[in-house]
Structure formats: structure tokens, C-alpha cells
Computed example of a mutant assay.
Amino acid sequence: MTRGDDLIKEILKIFESLRYKRDLWSLYSDFLEMTAIAISNSAERFFLPGSFEKREERYLSLAKSYDKDELLKMSEAFNLFVKLQDYNLESQGAKDILGGILMDLGLGDKWAGQFFTPDHVANLMAKLTYTEEGLKKEIKERGFVYVSDPAVGGGVTMIGLVNAMLDGGCNPQRDLFIECGDLDKRACFMTYIQLATLGIPAIVKNQDTLLGKVFDVWFTPAFYIDGWWFRLKSFKDKEKGGNLAKSKEIFEKREEIIYKEDEQLSLF
């Protein structure tokens, strides 16, 4: 039995200990949302104070339904998750930990319409789609690899790409940008948490791709590092024939664009 197996057992034990007086599906959903908010607000406290305040209010409303011991246990579950992710990266590559935990808890039937791709399949798909030569060529020509997935699920395919880049000698924390989304907000939370803690610059949108509606937007903390807003806007402006002056204007008005009360969100 590996250290990773032990960590998974410890995480599952925490959730199992709470299920005797809680609906496990609601518990896991709240855990995902509160964890995503905590990560997001670590950066948005400084960059998007309006969004920070709304999410902090949501966090407190969720936390009120749990006692101190339950909140401490959920915090410990997240700490174990981070340790497990570090272990996986050092030993076998990043994995879809949160999707695996959901299935191990027997909650798969609660997730209507979602299918969790196995890690090894996602890794193979990424390597077939993004060869080492192709990755390095794109980084050389564009400055980074840009990936978009409008129905990302729990993020396993993006985790597969992270592994493909690592195997190809690339640095996904510096050379990869992910823009993705999903209709299911829990899927967005899972993707956001996993990409954020892997240090990947990304935008995760809770969206209805078919109707063109965006309900919420999540920026990983790494997004705010190395001027990713300008890098991404410059990249997209070139595709659309725009200019960097427009990018700067949008950045300066980012909070108005990102979060409008009772209105559709829009980016780029």
C-alpha cells in the first residue's frame, strides 16, 4: 500500500465520519464550494474586492450550517487533498482526486449526466492530442499553450494535459493557459480546486455553452501572476484584430465585466 492509498483512506474516513448526521451528497457539495471560495478569495481579496465580498458572504452562509468540529474536519480533508496531490506529482503524475473521492463515496449516481474519464484514459488522450513536439512548437510561436474546453466536467482531461506537458519537459505553470467551463457548478468547483492547487493559470466558467450564458467566473490564483490578463488578451486581440489598448481598458474595468448583479457575465 502506497502513501497515496493511505491519504485517500484518511480523506474518505473524514467524510464517512460526518455522514451519520448529514446527507453525504450535500456535505461533499458544500465542501467543494467552500474550498473553491477559500482559494478564490485568497487572491480576489486584493484583485476583485466586489467579487470577494459576495463570495465571502456565500461562504459564511454555508459555514453556518456546520459546527466547529465539522468545519475543522473539512479543513483537514482539504489539507490531506493537497498532500495527496503533492505525492501524486512526485510519484506518478497529477490525478483527478476529487472525482475519485466522489466515486469512492458512492455518489456517482447523484451526478446526473456526468461521466468521469479514468485518469489513464485522460493521460493517453492528452498525449495523442498534444505531442511533445507540438507543445514546444506552440510555446515557441505563441508564448504558451492555450486550451479551451466548454464542457470540462471535473477537469480530468485538463489534468491529463498537465501530465503531458510535464512528461514533455514543459512547465504547465508557466507555459499553459486553460479556459474552460461546465453547466454543473459542482464540476466547476472540482476543476477550479484541482487546477488552482496545481498552480495552473486558468479561468473556469459556470456556463450554458449551448445558450451562450455565463453564470459565474472563477480565476485561479496563478491567473494573477506574470500578467496573464494582458498575455491572454494580447493573444486573443491578435486573433480578432484588436489591440492591446483595448485589453488595458478591459482589464481596468474587469470587475464590472466579470460580475454584474443579476446580469449575464461576459469575458473577452
Rank of each mutant, 00 (worst) to 15 (best):
E70M: 06
E90N: 15
Q85W: 10
R58Q: 06
H120W: 14
L80M: 05
F78E: 06
Y59T: 01
N41L: 11
D67I: 04
I101E: 09
L72A: 12
A63E: 07
E76Q: 14
E56P: 10
Y28N: 00
A77M: 05
V121P: 00
D119N: 13
Y146F: 14
Q85L: 13
H120T: 12
E132Y: 10
P49T: 05
A122Y: 04
F52M: 05
G100M: 13
A38Q: 13
L124W: 10
F31Q: 08
L107S: 01
S91D: 15
E132H: 09
A122H: 06
M125A: 09
K95T: 12
I139N: 01
N79C: 11
A63V: 01
V121C: 00
P118D: 04
P49H: 06
K54C: 11
E138F: 04
M34K: 05
L98Y: 09
N88R: 12
G143A: 08
K68R: 14
L71A: 05
D30H: 14
Y28G: 00
E57T: 11
G113H: 01
L24N: 01
K127H: 12
G113F: 06
L24I: 08
D104V: 07
S61L: 15
L60I: 10
S26R: 15
A112T: 15
G134S: 00
E56G: 11
N123A: 10
A63S: 05
M74Q: 11
I97S: 05
S40C: 11
A43R: 06
A38T: 13
I97T: 04
L27D: 01
K68V: 13
A36I: 03
L124I: 12
K127S: 14
F31T: 07
E138N: 04
E53P: 10
N123M: 08
L71T: 06
G106P: 03
L32V: 03
E138V: 05
F52E: 07
G106N: 04
S29T: 12
S91N: 15
V82R: 14
L62V: 11
L60A: 12
D23F: 11
E90W: 12
M74S: 09
K136Q: 01
